[in-house]
Computed example of a mutant assay.
Amino acid sequence: MYVPVELFEVAHRLSWVKLGVLSVNLAIVAYLGYELTTHGRSPRNPSLPRSPRRSRKT
């Protein structure tokens, strides 16, 4: 999510910590992209019960 900011930070002043954080975030983004492309978004399960609406007694 903050990959552009981290790229700027690494380009501005390189450090091992910033490079590590960038690598972890890129791995997470790659994993999420992989999951979306292979499995897609799963539809909501309609068989699950909805939470009951509370009626207001005044």
Rank of each mutant, 00 (worst) to 15 (best):
K57L: 13
L7M: 12
Y2S: 15
H39V: 05
R13C: 14
Y34C: 02
V5S: 11
G40W: 05
E35D: 10
I28Y: 09
R44E: 10
R50H: 07
S55A: 15
Y31A: 13
M1G: 11
P52L: 05
R53Y: 11
M1I: 13
P43K: 05
A11C: 08
H12Y: 15
H12G: 11
L19V: 12
E6I: 03
S51H: 10
T58L: 06
R50Y: 10
V17P: 01
H39Q: 09
K18M: 11
V24S: 00
T58P: 07
P49L: 04
P43F: 05
V21T: 10
S23A: 12
N45Y: 06
V5L: 14
T37W: 06
R54V: 12
L36Y: 02
K18F: 03
V3N: 05
E6C: 04
S15W: 06
S42K: 08
A11V: 10
L32R: 06
R41N: 03
I28R: 12
A11F: 14
S15D: 10
L36A: 04
A30I: 12
V24A: 02
L14R: 14
Y31R: 11
F8G: 09
R54K: 13
L19K: 02
L36S: 02
P49M: 02
G33H: 02
V24M: 01
H39P: 00
R53T: 12
L32Q: 13
L22C: 04
W16M: 14
V5P: 00
K18P: 00
L32H: 03
N25G: 00
T58M: 05
R41D: 03
K57N: 06
K18G: 05
L36D: 01
V24G: 00
V24H: 00
S55Y: 13
Y34P: 00
L26V: 08
T38H: 09
S51M: 10
S47A: 12
V24F: 01
P43S: 07
G20H: 08
L32N: 08
P52R: 07
P46D: 03
V5C: 08
W16S: 10
S42L: 12
V17T: 13
K57Q: 05
L36C: 01
R13M: 15
T38S: 04
P4L: 08
H12E: 10
V10R: 05
G33Q: 02
R50K: 12
E9C: 12
L14T: 08
S15C: 07
L22K: 01
L19Y: 01
R41P: 00
R53W: 12
R50A: 10
R13I: 15
H39R: 13
G40K: 01
R13E: 15
T58Q: 07
S42I: 06
G20F: 06
E9W: 10
V24L: 07
P46W: 06
Y31G: 02
E9I: 08
V10K: 04
R56A: 13
T38Y: 04
V21L: 08
G40I: 02
P43W: 06
M1W: 11
S42A: 11
S55T: 13
R44C: 05
R50I: 01
V5Y: 13
R56E: 07
M1C: 07
P4W: 09
L48W: 08
R54I: 14
T38I: 09
L36K: 03
Y34A: 04
